[in-house]
Each structure stands twice: as C-alpha cells, then as structure tokens.
C-alpha cells in the first residue's frame, strides 16, 4: 500500500517538471528566427495555409494563449505533419521509436554483460593485477568517442570479416538484431566502464564494512556472503547509475544511429534538423525528455523496492 502512495507522490512531483519542459520546448520553437507558422509548414507552403495555421496557433493572441494552444495540441497528440516525410508526426515517430528503444536495450544487455563480472573481479581483487588492468581498460573506454569505436567495429566485423552488416536495419527480426549488435556494443562501452568503476568501488567499500565480517563470523558459506551481503548492496548504487545512463543512451542514439544508418528517432532528429522539419524536431525532443522523466520515475520506484531504508 505504501508503495502505491509513493508512486503517486512521485508522479505528482514529476508534473511541474513536465510543465517546465513543455514551456522550454515551446520557447525553443518561438526562438527560432522567422514566422512560427511558416516554420511549422516549411518555406514552400502556400500563404493561405500559413494564414490558417497562424489563426489555429493563435499567433495574433498573447503568448500565454499560444502556449495553451500548444499544450492542447501536445495532449491530444495533434503534432502536425512532417514536412520531409509528408505523414503525421505521431505516425512517423511510432514507426521509429521501437528501434531506438531496442538499441538502448541491446546496449543495456552488453553493459551488464561487461560491467558486472569485471567490476566484481576488480573489486574483489583490489589493487592486484586484475584490478589494475581493468582500471586501465575502463579509463581508455571512457575516453574514447563511441562513434569512432562504432566505425572501427564496422570496419572490422562488417568490411573485413563480413560477419555483420555495415549499417541499416534489415527487414526480419534476425536482421534487426544483427543490425543492432555493433551499434549496441559501441554505445555500451562508456557506460559499461562507468558502471564497472562504480561496482568496483562499492565492492571495495562494502568489503571493509562490519556486516561482511559479521556474516563471515557466523560461518556463512563464502557464496552466500558474496551474493547476499556484498553483491546485493553493491548493486543498489549500480541500479541508479544504470538508469541515469539509459537516458544517456537515448541521447547518444542521435550519433550512433547516424553512424550505422539506423532509422530510429535519433537519426530522425538529425535529419529533421537539417531539413528544418521543426514539427518533428519539437516532438522528438519532447518525447525524449518525457522518456527520461518516466525512466527516472521507474528507477526511484525500483530503488524503493530494493532498498528498504528509503522512506516511503
């Protein structure tokens, strides 16, 4: 019961932030030089259509009214038509959002696959050769541009070995998955290194705490101590970091999708900026920040379930 209260409370806390996000996006669209109605319809639109939209957007009315009209459109998902693709923005985005989230999912898979074991090994072997090696590798991974790593992977697995596609998305689920492997690994590296460091440091800290010694002093098996006492506590801070980085992965999709020519919303955003397709730009930016807020909410709730110390 208290968990439900907590979720409701967090939901209510998000609303003002969401409101400010919409104000910012509204302001952003008004800050672009030129007539907002013409920006929405493109340079080549007919004057009559522009006039009609001007009335609809309330450009003759005060800014506050214009904002409310904007909000109404946002809530009713009346986001206009893409200038570039000539289809409704909602439809365009819904076609592409699956790819971006799948990509983030694949990256998450690799992040966990790489960082958990390595972070654990480094933490349990503090200052030994394994720890030092892992430290150097993670340092290099953090300092490398992921899109460069992506191109190198492409060069090796795609051009040289011809094992995986150089880019593109294919048409069957298997092709989809193959297409996501390399970009998934490329965008996973930085986060994997960060999570690995975080885990390593948590484990080193926890290892010096009394409750681990106390568990051992009761004669618990080594396996039990490591699982229930060390890892369970070390994973707590890793979960928060992982979710923060999920938001980062969504942002990073902008570059990585362009590198691998993947038609997700990241590439859509870049293409729309170049094409001055502003209805799409504003919708994608809103969607991404909305996703971040939802992810943060889920993390907080998840964390409250994992850590009994959080007051609900």
């Amino acid at each position: 019961m208290s968990h439900i209260n907590y979720i409701v409370k967090r939901l209510l806390q998000i609303l003002p932030v969401l409101l400010c996000v919409t104000i910012l996006i509204f302001a952003m669209m008004r800050l672009i030089p030129g007539d907002p109605a013409r920006i929405q319809l493109g340079e080549n639109a007919r004057e009559a259509a522009v006039q009609a939209l001007r009335l609809k957007m309330g450009l003759d009315k005060p800014l506050v009214t214009q904002y409310f009209i904007f909000m109404k459109q946002l809530i009713t998902l009346d986001l206009g038509t893409s200038l570039l693709y000539k289809i409704p923005v909602v439809k365009l985005i819904s076609q592409r959002i699956g790819l971006t989230f799948s990509l983030a999912g694949v990256s998450m898979f690799f992040i966990i696959l790489i960082s958990f074991p390595l972070g654990y090994i480094a933490g349990m072997n503090k200052d030994k050769a394994a720890d030092q090696t892992i430290r150097v590798i993670s340092l290099a991974a953090i300092s490398m541009p992921s899109f460069w790593l992506g191109i190198l992977l492409m060069l090796f697995f795609g051009v040289h070995l011809r094992l995986l596609p150089v880019g593109g998305w294919g048409s069957t689920p298997l092709e989809h998955l193959k297409g996501l492997l390399l970009p998934g690994i490329a965008s996973a590296m930085v986060t994997a290194a960060l999570v690995m460091r975080n885990l390593r440091n948590s484990i080193v800290d926890i290892n010096s705490l009394d409750y681990v010694d106390f568990a051992r002093s009761k004669g618990l098996m080594d396996k039990t101590v490591k699982k229930n006492y060390i890892m369970r506590n070390a994973l707590l801070s890793a979960v928060t970091l992982l979710s923060m980085r999920f938001a980062w992965l969504l942002g990073g999709s902008v570059v990585i999708e362009t590198v691998f020519a993947l038609p997700g919303i990241g590439k859509l955003l870049v293409d729309s900026i170049f094409a001055r397709d502003y209805p799409v730009v504003q919708s994608v930016v809103f969607l991404l920040s909305f996703s971040v807020l939802v992810i943060n909410l889920i993390t907080d709730v998840l964390y409250a379930f994992l850590d009994p110390r959080i007051r609900l």
Binding site: S217, G219, N233, L306, P308, R309
Partner: peptide
C-alpha cells in the same frame, strides 16, 4: 566459525546488512 566461535561487533548499525 559460528558453530564453535562467534563474534559480535561494536557498531550494530554497520554490522547488520541494511537490505536484509
């Protein structure tokens, strides 16, 4: 350990696992 010889610690707060 435990079965023959067991130990209690100075700080009970830090000697108990906070998430169990």
């Amino acid at each position: 350990r435990g079965r023959q010889m067991s130990m209690i610690f100075q700080e009970p707060m830090t000697a108990l696992n906070p998430v169990m």
